[in-house]
């Protein structure tokens, strides 16, 4: 048998060893991981706007070339910060922690959200980053709107750990390509968001088709998560959109 002292020594040694290995790995690799994450975020924003041939090597360059303004707004729709210079990845808007701000929103605290403005061949495109919860973990994305803040140009979605083949399908073109052309506001000008529904959108009347896309079969909870995410995030921008007139 092993003595208690041995067990404690063994456990202590193991804890220190593992902690040392894991934290040094995390610290050493952090700068590279953060850069990869930033590049990935830029790629996703550019792809949502419909810019082609974006890869991890040219993302930073293209991002600075296309993005003209990075805005931070608050819950009343006021612009708090703008950034138009080079080095967009250092702007306040790019650094906003969406998860934290949406948490503030859910507990009725004040919050601030980013908005990216792109200029693509003379056309103004506004990009709103999204974040919500799927089945197993977070889902996120970017939604690109025309200058009227109503018509969707494109979307990209991502997820951390949705079920492969089911919920994970949200990041495939099959799902994403349904969004362009859909509208956020109805004909009266009220905000309705974009819904994710079951049963085949084409079987519904035109006013439903205008605001809805097909859910993923077998991925109900993830689809609902996407549905709630779009509504929750975009409704926070409504005061800003209405202020612009």
């Amino acid at each position: 048998m092993y003595s208690n002292a041995y067990i404690f020594r063994y456990a202590g040694l193991m804890v220190i060893l593992v902690a040392a290995i894991l934290s040094s790995a995390a610290m050493l690799l952090k700068p590279m991981q953060e850069r990869n994450e930033a590049v990935d975020k830029m790629q996703s924003i550019l792809t949502a706007a419909g810019i082609e041939n974006v890869n991890s090597d040219n993302a930073i360059e293209l991002f600075n070339q296309y993005v003209t303004n990075m805005i931070v707004i608050d819950e009343k729709g006021n612009v708090i910060d703008e950034y138009k210079d080079a080095g967009k990845e250092n702007s306040e808007a790019f650094k906003v922690n969406l998860k934290e701000q949406l948490y503030n929103k859910s507990v009725n605290r004040s919050f601030r959200l980013p908005l990216y403005v792109l200029d693509k061949d003379g056309e103004t495109i506004n990009i709103v980053p999204l974040r919500g919860v799927g089945l197993w973990g977070p889902v996120w994305g970017n939604i690109a709107l025309k200058s009227d803040f109503n018509t969707i140009v494109g979307v990209t979605f991502g997820h951390k750990s949705e079920t492969p083949g089911l919920g994970a399908e949200i990041e495939t073109p099959v799902f994403e390509d349904q969004f362009p052309g859909k509208k956020l506001f109805n004909e009266k000008g009220d905000f309705v968001s974009i819904g994710v529904i079951k049963g085949g959108v084409e079987n519904f009347p035109a006013d439903v088709q205008r605001h809805n896309v097909d859910a993923i079969s077998g991925g109900t909870i993830t689809s609902n998560g996407v549905n709630d995410m779009i509504k929750n995030v975009l409704e926070s921008y409504v005061p800003y959109i209405q202020k612009r007139g």
Partner: peptide
């Protein structure tokens, strides 16, 4: 550990 290394080098 493997996940961290992959995240840094082959994102």
């Amino acid at each position: 550990l493997v996940d961290q290394v992959l995240k840094a080098f082959v994102y």
